[in-house]
Design a protein around this nucleic acid. Structure first.
Lengths: 347, 347
DNA sequence: CTGTTAGCGCTTTCAT
DNA sequence: ATGAAAGCGCTAACAG
């Protein structure tokens, strides 16, 4: 009950059993060089026999590092974050690190202080930043000045550093090619939240897709949004009320696409007969919508794992850590179909 | 960069400035009694001036406790867990504790060992258990034998202990009364996962509701499920294929309800004109389905916070901590309506 | 009510 | 390649 060590086994017990010094055991457990393989083996056997587990507090105190990674996120209810959590945990467990959760309200004025305090208090060995915190220049400056290491998931190009990203622009361009191949020429887009780099990449992918098909960009078909269900509803209502409404809508993410489908259903616009809808993310809900949603799969767990791996790697070998490209995948489901002869009309 | 203490201020710096001993500072920071109010004030001023933050590792090591709470959960992608996370963090921050995430695969054979290992390694001062781990008798026994404290969220009656729960049976009974008041007499139910106490409570609430309305229980209208979208689809397909299909379906949770709506849409069964659908949980998606889902709101964040509070309370005053009832709320939306003259039929 | 002393279990530094 | 001793920053046990 709250005993600091689960088992009462300490490092000198292991040392005694293995017939070496404490320091040697320590070396083995920290993967330090300068230990003869046979010595290492002896120690490992002894440790296993006694079921030794180094006490994290003692380790941190003596070693002056916390073996702690802090996952910094903004949206506290999203299932996206849970995916990332799983990935970060995967990496941490493998490296005998632990992870703490650090929610931070991006829109609040003092969010930099909140994070700074948290860093001061827990002294994590590094942070994992998720969007849009990855692009908060004030925050990044602060972290640099404090010499706090961090890895980013899907940061904007200019803030790259180390972490994991995905070529969203290219993914969307490919998806657009698919839509075009179904015969669509009037394709609407509802943008993501302006704080997110993803919004820009996806918009650019949309433009690329139009250009590749020789379709002129029509600003009336592009509406602002914020990655939310509500903005999908609002955007779809506007688009479907146009004199020449689009026959397909690319929503900046799955939540927005769900909103589009909601609005369409309410007006009696059939999907995909009257209107094709595309999202981005491939949340679990994408399969569950009716009709199921065509979207781009973003492997968030994978990205969490990779970002954490790069972070931990950067502690040992700062030079080799970097920004890793993660593959995407187009998931074609039932919300897309051939362009109708006549554009969508409310009934 | 991974310095153990954010600021280099230590307890004896504070002691010196306040003109007291280290131990007195320690007393103040741990809310121990036997400190004169004015001494306490002096210390607090000094600490604030120096911006002192106790080093967690040193605290844990010397105090033989970790100031750590472990959140144990099974479903690693659910947004339910994220809600609970937020609540637990709220409580932990207030008490200067930290939280670790401990995913555990309930269906895996060695999940008790996984958890035991985690406890041995990190020595959390307590665990927060979420369903269905709350009712894993082997696990609970193990924890008791190891003297590991825990609080449970929505455990079965017999495993109660301390934590937070909600009167789900009564909530469902009330919801059933609402459905009955709309004129429905043939009401189907798709059950939850059999490992979860919630499945039983919700089934019992369903039966209570029928009994209260003088409707005879019909076992053909009750199907097994597992809290998943898929089981909602399957259940609805069976129910809607019945010779006398129900005019309303109470799904054991929102995911299942989403599946029911999906299956209904596919068959051209209109909601709520032909079929009323009810869920349980009030996930964000409940608002986003079309039509929006009538359901029971379960305040998961609140429950997480309360469970953590009770856990922390039980460390200081084991006698006063207990199982706290959290209120529910019926959320009536668009998926329920008057019973049709004739039962739902596929078109 | 307050202070002194002796560790907590590990890693560091510096020898060897 | 290995070891001995000296702490890391805090709290427990005991004094006063």
């Amino acid at each position: 009950m709250g005993k600091s060590a689960g088992s009462g086994v300490r490092i000198d017990d292991v040392a005694r059993l293995a017939g070496v010094s404490m320091k040697t055991v320590s070396r083995v457990f920290n993967h330090e060089p300068n230990v003869r393989p046979e010595t290492r083996a002896k120690v490992e056997v002894a440790a296993k026999t006694l079921n030794f587990r180094p006490n994290p507090s003692a380790r941190s105190l003596a070693g002056n590092r916390s073996y702690l990674v802090s996952l910094v996120y903004d949206n506290p209810s999203s299932s996206y974050v849970m995916q990332v959590v799983s990935g970060v945990l995967d990496a941490c467990e493998a490296a005998h690190y632990s992870m703490m959760m650090r929610p931070v309200d991006f829109s609040s004025r003092d969010h930099v202080d909140v994070l700074t305090d948290s860093v001061a208090q827990y002294a994590p060995d590094g942070l994992i930043l998720t969007p849009p915190l990855t692009d908060d220049v004030a925050l990044l400056e602060k972290l640099k000045s404090l010499n706090v290491r961090y890895a980013s998931i899907s940061p904007r190009e200019k803030n790259a550093g180390i972490g994991a990203r995905l070529d969203e622009r290219r993914a969307v361009r490919e998806m657009m090619a698919h839509i075009v191949s179904l015969g669509h020429r009037r394709i609407g887009h509802i943008k993501g939240h302006r704080d997110h780099g993803a919004s820009e990449w996806r918009l650019n992918g949309y433009k690329d897709g139009l250009a590749a098909a020789g379709i002129e960009f029509d600003k009336d078909l592009v509406l602002s949004g914020e990655f939310s269900f509500e903005s999908g509803v609002a955007g779809a209502e506007t688009l479907l009320s146009l004199k020449h409404p689009p026959t397909a809508i690319f929503a900046a993410n799955d939540d927005t696409a769900a909103g589009v489908m909601h609005a369409a259903a309410e007006r009696g616009v059939r999907i995909p007969q009257d209107l094709s809808v595309v999202g981005f993310d491939d949340l679990p809900m994408a399969r569950q919508l009716w009709p199921s949603l065509t979207t781009v799969r973003q492997a968030s767990r994978e990205m969490g794992r990779i970002a954490a791996e790069q972070l931990l790697l950067s502690i040992r070998e700062p030079e080799v850590a970097g920004m890793v490209q993660v593959p995407y995948e187009l998931v074609l489901r039932a919300s897309t179909g051939p362009a109708p002869k006549r554009p969508a009309r409310s009934r």
